[in-house]
Design a protein around this nucleic acid. Structure first.
Length: 421
RNA sequence: GUGGCUGUAGCUCAGUUGGUUAGAGCGCCUGAUUGUGGUUCAGGAGGCCGUGGGUUCAAAUCCCAUCAGCCACCCCA
């Protein structure tokens, strides 16, 4: 047993797992490009206050989950725990506030110091999309529609459910917050320990408590939707009907409360029941207050982020990769020729595996192990006759082919072996 | 940060009420085939039984501690 292990909550991404993640990210990029979004990459760490100011003083992310450190100049820096705050910072830093709408997508690692469990890591990957500068619900609709198409392309739409809620505008939230505290105070002693703390810090979050008793109390609570200002109510209704027009199925969950402070109006989550306790695989909402909160102009935004690892957990079928052609040279001259042929194949974009050493048997065994479609054999016979032997590894048939006809002969394997992107 | 479960070969796991050289399957290596893979057969390598302490004539097995992993709470993608 080695003592050299990856840091808790991190792991190495190798082979199939890596390919699967790449596949998911590739699908997401593809959809984002189709929707007219542009790629952006912000740094993996930011000044600590980028997150501290925006995520909310009461959020757990700020309170206990951030990887914060001082650099050699004494500045407090933080490994990004999520993507949106950094994007908002980039809007301001880049002087892009007059260039709206900004339509961006990003992907990369995020860091949170949490206790790892199923679907929860300390370094994990997100893909996200942001639409900045559009106050109308068309933006919310587009962004949700994009998430839907992303999941459809991955064949996951039947596995997930879309839940929607509105947090209203500031006015709505303020009124409701008071009403809720009023209501819950009567039950204060019956609430779970955690919810009693939430009551003073962030009462809205009691709404999505998992505690059975809390749920009972909440079911009698006044409904948020009755406290929406007419504007907020209209916003939500317009968005819902827009989703319906696009044939997007959703259910309304009045208890869906996002954890981060900058959300307002729309919140949504795509949820699966196959992921254990961490059922949310893609979530987002509207954050009109974020950029002004950071000192920028009053620019609205909507967006979402998807947990790549969580999405990967739902994908069962293996990713199809091109199969290789193996080039096996025998003897010194054979090996030299093999290297030349391998390069030619590679220049023709065939996935090519050059066998470095060992005899024919070893070479073929390796070819079989990596699932190659064919092996090209170059030994004494071939060298003296200026040919190569092409062995079809699926049926064992062999063909002798002249050097010049090799490319055209291999065309029969094109669909299996060519690397196209 | 709190709780529950689990640590035996590269991987997945057996290991009876403590008892002598700790096993299997898969994988790996060699050979049956010195120019022919996948199947088969024969053989081989690989273990401080997570770590440290304790009980005992004797510990993979019982006790304590510690570390790690998983799952859950919390929170979130």
């Amino acid at each position: 047993m080695s003592k050299l292990l990856p840091v808790r909550g991190t792991h190495d991404l190798i082979g199939e797992n890596f390919r699967l993640q790449n596949h998911v990210i590739k699908s997401a990029r593809f959809v984002a490009e189709i929707f007219g979004y542009e790629p952006i990459e912000t740094p993996i760490f930011e000044s600590t206050d980028v997150y501290q100011r925006t995520l909310g003083e009461t959020s757990d992310i700020v309170n206990k989950e951030m990887y914060t450190f001082k650099d050699k100049g004494g500045d407090s820096l933080t490994l990004r725990p999520e993507g949106t705050a950094g994007i908002a910072r980039a809007v301001i830093s880049g002087g892009l506030q007059d260039n709206t709408p900004l339509k961006w997508y990003y992907s990369g690692p995020m860091f949170r110091h949490e206790r790892p469990q199923k679907g929860r890591l300390r370094q994990f990957h997100q893909f996200g999309a942001e639409l900045i500068g559009v106050a109308d619900p068309v933006a919310d609709i587009e962004v949700i529609s994009m998430a839907t198409e992303f999941l459809r392309d991955l064949d996951l739409l039947s596995e997930v459910k879309l839940q929607l809620n509105t947090l209203g505008d500031l006015q709505s939230r303020k009124t409701y917050r008071e009403t809720l505290i009023n209501y819950l105070s009567d039950y204060k002693d019956e609430l779970s320990e955690e919810s009693q703390i939430r009551l003073t810090r962030n009462p809205l979050r009691i709404l999505d408590s998992k505690d059975i008793n809390d749920k009972k109390i909440i079911s009698g609570a006044p409904s948020f939707h009755n406290f929406l200002t007419p504007e907020a109510d209209l916003f939500f209704k317009n968005m819902c009907s827009g989703l319906e027009d696009l044939g997007i199925e959703y259910s309304s969950n009045p208890y869906l409360v996002r954890g981060l402070d900058y959300y307002c109006h729309t919140t949504f989550e795509f949820i699966s029941d196959k992921l254990g306790a961490q059922g949310t695989l893609l979530a987002g909402g509207r954050y009109d207050g974020l950029i002004p909160m950071m000192g920028g102009q009053s620019i609205p935004g909507v967006g979402w982020a998807a947990g790549i690892e969580r999405i990967c957990m739902l994908i069962q079928k293996p990713i199809e990769e091109p199969r290789a052609i193996c080039v096996i040279g025998l003897g010194k001259l054979g090996e030299q020729e093999a290297a030349k042929i391998a390069l030619k194949l590679r220049q023709s974009k065939f996935k090519t595996e050059l066998i470095y050493k060992g005899g024919l048997k070893r070479g073929l065994r390796r070819a079989n192990k990596i699932g190659a479609v064919a092996a090209i054999l170059i030994g004494e016979n071939e060298l003296t006759n200026n040919i190569v032997t092409v062995r079809n590894l699926d049926n064992g048939s062999q063909t002798e082919v002249g050097f010049s006809e090799l490319d055209s002969h291999l065309a029969i394997y094109d669909s299996a072996t060519l690397i196209t992107d």
